[in-house]
Design a protein around this nucleic acid. Sequence first.
DNA 1: AGCCGAGTATGGTCAGACCATACTCCAGGG
DNA 2: CCCTGGAGTATGGTCTGACCATACTCGGCT
Lengths: 254, 254
Amino acid sequence: MAGRARRTRAFEEVLLQVERRIADDGLRVGDRLPGERQLAEQLQVSRASVREALRVLETLGVVSSQAGRGPDAGAILTSRPDSALTDLLRLSLGLSSLSLREVIDTRLMIERWSAEHAARGATTQARIDAMAAARPGATTELRPDAVAEARPGAMAEAIRAMEAAATAEEFVEHDIAFHVAIAEASGNRLVAAVMRALRDAMRRYAIEAVERLGDTGVLREDHRRIHDAITSGDAAAAIDAVTAHLAHAYPELF
Amino acid sequence: MAGRARRTRAFEEVLLQVERRIADDGLRVGDRLPGERQLAEQLQVSRASVREALRVLETLGVVSSQAGRGPDAGAILTSRPDSALTDLLRLSLGLSSLSLREVIDTRLMIERWSAEHAARGATTQARIDAMAAARPGATTELRPDAVAEARPGAMAEAIRAMEAAATAEEFVEHDIAFHVAIAEASGNRLVAAVMRALRDAMRRYAIEAVERLGDTGVLREDHRRIHDAITSGDAAAAIDAVTAHLAHAYPELF
DNA sequence: AGCCGAGTATGGTCAGACCATACTCCAGGG
DNA sequence: CCCTGGAGTATGGTCTGACCATACTCGGCT
C-alpha cells in the first residue's frame, strides 16, 4: 500500500462484505443479518468495528436493530430512506452548505412533477383505491411490491385538518401531509421520499413563512385548487396551481 | 420512561448534542469538533459511543475524520452529501425497494429541469466563467459561498472524451460527467448532488443499457443537440433534447 | 393445560489498552 | 543562522473482555 490513499478502515470492509452478501445471497427486506459477534468472527474484526458498520447501515435506512431474542431481534434488513434523506438535508441546511433558495427551487421542481403525474394518474384512481384497501396500516415503510403508496383520502383529509389548525405549527404539519400525499399519488416512491425529506428538513422555515404571512387564506384556497385539478385529472391546471402556491408561500423568492 | 419507545441510545444523544452545538455555536464547514476522548468525557459516554455518532455524521457527509495531529486532524465539519445520497440509492436499488423505473423517471425530471435552467443561465455564462477562473481546483466539496459549481468546459470536454471511449464503462463514465455538468450548470447544488448520486447508483444499469444498445451514435448525437441547445440558451429545445435522449437510452421504458 | 421462572441469545455500553499517523518542538550539526 | 533529524504527543483506528438490558425459549411446577 503506497499510503497516499488512506488504508481502508475495518468497518468499511464490513460494509463492503455486508453489501456483497446482500447482493450475492439475494437478501430482501425482512431478512436477518448475522449477529454482531458472529459477523465479527466471520470477518476477523472486532465487534466494535461491526457495530460501526451497522450504525452506518442503520443511518442509510437499510437495517434496523432490535435487542432481545426471537425472530424480530438482531439486525433486520429494512428500507426507510426517508429519515436518512431528512437528516442529510437538515444538516446541510444547518451548515449553510445549501441555501434555502436551492431547496425551494428543488421543491418547486418536485411539486410540479408530482402534481402533473398525480393528475395523470387520477384516471386510474379506482384501481389504486382497490389496492389501498388491502393496506395494513399507516406504515411509512417502503415495500418493494407496493405499486403505489397513495392513500386515497389523504389529500382531502389534510385540507380539512388545515382548516381546523390553530397554530402555525399545526398548519404546517398538515400542509406537509398534503404535499407528501400529492407526491405519493404520483406513484413514484423515490420522488415521494425526497419530498418528505425536503419538507421535514424545511419544517422550521415553513413555520416561519406561515407566521410571516399571517393569514393562511390564500394558501388554503391554493390547496383546494390543487386538489380539484388533480382529482379532475387536469395536469396543466395542477402544475399552474402548485406553482402559484409556492409563489404565495415564499413571495420573497419570486 | 414508559418503555413503549426504545430508550435513546448513547450515540443518539451524542448526535443531538453535536447537532445542537453546530447550530448554537454557529459552526461552519472547516471548523473542528472536539476530539473523541474529550467529547466522550464532556457527554459522559464512552468513546465507542462517540465514535458511533461520528460514523453516522461521516455517513451523512457532515464530518470527515483525519488521524494524526495538527490543524487538519480530528473531526472536521464538511459538506459532501453526494456520497451519502449515492450510497442510499445504491443500497435501495440493491434491496429492490426502488424500481429502476422510478429512478429513471426521477432522473428524467431532474434532467429536464437542469437542462432548462442551464440554458436559461447560459446568458450569464461570462460571469460564471469569470468566477470559475478563481477556482482552486477540481474539488467536489460543496462550498457555502460558491454561487455556481459549474465548470464551463466540462460538458464539451465530456463529449470529446465519449468520442474516444473504447468500452461501455469508459463511455458511461464520461456520460455521467456530461450529465452532472448539466446539473451543475443549473446552479443548484442540491439538484446537482441528486443527479450525481442517481448516476453513480445507476452506473451498473447504464453500462448494461449501453452494451444492449451496441452503437452509441444516437446517444452521441443527442449529447451534441443538448449541448448546442444549452449553450445557445434555448430552454425549450434543451428540454426536448434531454427527453429524447432518455428515450433513446432506455427504449424499453417508454 | 397453564403459568412462571431459569436460561440464553441478542444488542447496548463501558473501560482500558495498544497501534498508526502526522504534526510540533527542540537539540545538535552544518 | 539555518536546517535537519529525532523525541514527544495528540489524534483517530482497533481490539479485548466484561457487564447490563431486553426479550424470547424452554422446562418444570402447580
